[in-house]
Design a protein around this nucleic acid. Structure first.
Lengths: 347, 347
DNA sequence: ATGAAAGCGCTAACAA
DNA sequence: TTGTTAGCGCTTTCAT
């Protein structure tokens, strides 16, 4: 028979007793709140250290804050999200807030489960990265907990938004390719039909930026978008379709580095050389793009800055729930590498 | 002046009133606990649905469980961890448990902050992936919360362990390269000095497996380990050092696909062709290894299985805290791809 | 099978 | 400035 009791955790009462003060005083010290003399603070801190006390975040949450920030991302597979997370982490490192991550998958239902879970756990704020949920749902969440939306366009008075200018980013790619002499520049997009998402999701904005830039460069007739999905497989399939065109493109602009991976795979399979036979560009400037043997021209979104801005906005919103919402839009820049070059057969 | 109140959340009391039952009964229904008639259950469920009630996880945690599982991983940058996470997620999907992730970084201090945070939030259980903390610390954690350690060798009566046989995995690589005719097979390891970790960390076990296999194949004199770090940069630097050897290796076995990325980068820079001039093998069989233009021979650890086993063990431990601890060791398999071939200059 | 009441560890309102 | 006390929303005794 096992009689070993799981040792009871040290509570605020133990600390108060040990320091000969009230729990209120201990609580004030914990929160750096007003109303405790320096001597009291010292005594309490000593007791805390001696007893190895740690406040119970769940219990704190019952009355005050949980000191927990929830970050939802679609998947941990995309290394670009790691950059954003680093930015968030760096900005929150010296605060009392703790970041916990949750994956939202790519459906409204799985996102709902995750965001509900964060709310149920009384998180003090949430950062939602590229969420696919409806506007209404996002506003519902924002009504319940301070919320910052990252990587999804469209404003709301209820939440703050941090985006990178996807419209401009796509234009940068088209401009670059056009300057190299390309005319038949195709684009691989993530298939989307929902009207709100068609306006707000980054992929849709990139596609729109592509269209606009093509027209601006007198290439309206060459606009060629294949809508598959923002995955490696989507890129693979998309490239295969493009290669089957009677007049096949001389350059492929994939909506994400991930997608470009699939494109490169398909091209390798077809025996085509990059960039000699065909140019390829991606988006996100992930480590994969920078990897020398790949050397993918890509659009850099400064994920770290996106993250630190999101953290800043969230902290502001937590302290001023009713403040007007703000939108931060960052400017992307093109990173030219070896995967793009002049078209072999001039058009 | 903003008079809009944040709408009070529906509580168990509201549900009880709405259904004309006691809160106790509602609680029983929530937990599928014994002691509520079918009619009661139906009534309560109806009230829950009508009011859109969701139990407050933080409050539940005060007395019972939080239905939260914490998963700590060193970084979200390594795609291999995503496989493990998928395994965990799949196994927990149909339970009431919710997974929240935390990054532990690569230091004992940052891991401590993260694990403390999970404990403070009263998580029902934690899965620690490749933790670097001391044995004592791991056992301390396990004493406070049901714990499963993944990817770190060494048993403890206090926690369960899931590993893949790194010793065998390393041997598979050496065998393969040796069979191809290689003799000068070098290995890039993560530098480690702590004696416990030297026994328990996967990289150390892989290095040991490499040494053992080299000796077993009569290549004791060719054992050549460069200790840098398990990062892309570590691979890059390690490869540069190996290339500077008077008799340089004909094959490099990198301790992780990530490391192999750096190796390939260095080789490309040095103008060496893979596998014609030099063979390269990795570990983890990530999507990167499978990527056709890279086509990296690698060791598959079946991350999904690792994850689902970890979830299973954790659920068992949560329901039987005092049960003897168990260790699951999975067997790796080699995936041969284009990055390994016969040495050009026979030894 | 059902319900009343205590209490988990903390913070906020109030008193001294 | 300091302490006392009443909850936060649940689950868990313990009656009935």
């Amino acid at each position: 028979m096992d009689t070993s009791q799981p040792p009871r955790r040290v509570t605020i009462i133990d600390v108060a007793r040990h320091a000969n003060v009230s729990t209120t005083t201990v609580s004030k010290v914990l929160r750096n709140a007003y109303g405790a003399s320096p001597e009291m603070r010292a005594k309490v801190r000593e007791a805390i250290a001696e007893l190895g006390y740690r406040p119970d975040a769940a219990a704190r949450g019952m009355r005050g804050q949980t000191y927990t920030i929830g970050v939802m991302l679609p998947t941990i597979r995309n290394p670009f999200f790691a950059d954003i997370l680093d930015g968030l982490t760096d900005r929150l490192r010296d605060t009392d807030y703790q970041i916990l991550l949750g994956t939202g998958g790519d459906g409204e239902d799985t996102e709902e489960r995750m965001t509900d879970a964060m709310i149920d756990r009384r998180m003090d704020g949430v950062v939602l990265i590229a969420p696919v949920s409806s506007r209404a749902r996002l506003e519902q969440i924002a009504g319940l907990v301070p919320t910052v939306i990252v990587g999804r366009h469209g404003n709301s008075p209820l939440y703050d938004v941090v985006t990178d200018d996807d419209f401009v980013g796509a234009a940068l790619v088209v401009e670059h390719l056009s300057a190299l002499g390309h005319r038949r520049i195709a684009h691989i997009d993530h298939s989307e039909t929902d009207p709100t998402r068609l306006l707000e999701m980054p992929n849709a904005v990139r596609a729109e930026g592509y269209r606009h830039a093509m027209r601006a460069h007198g290439l309206a007739d060459e606009i060629d978008i294949v809508a598959t999905s923002y995955t490696q497989e989507g890129g693979y399939i998309g490239a295969q379709r493009l290669l089957a065109r009677p007049r096949r493109p001389t350059a492929i602009f994939a909506g994400a580095d991930f997608v470009a991976m699939g494109v490169l795979e398909a091209l390798a399979e077809a025996g085509l050389k990059v960039p000699e036979d065909i140019s390829v560009a991606g988006y996100d400037n992930t480590t994969f793009a920078a990897f020398a043997p790949v050397s993918l021209t890509s659009v850099d979104q400064a994920g770290h800055q996106i993250g630190s801005n999101a953290a800043r906005l969230l902290l502001e919103r937590i302290s001023h729930r009713q403040a007007p919402s703000s939108q931060v839009k960052l400017t992307p820049k093109l990173v030219v590498r070896g995967s793009t070059g002049r078209p072999s057969v001039p058009d």
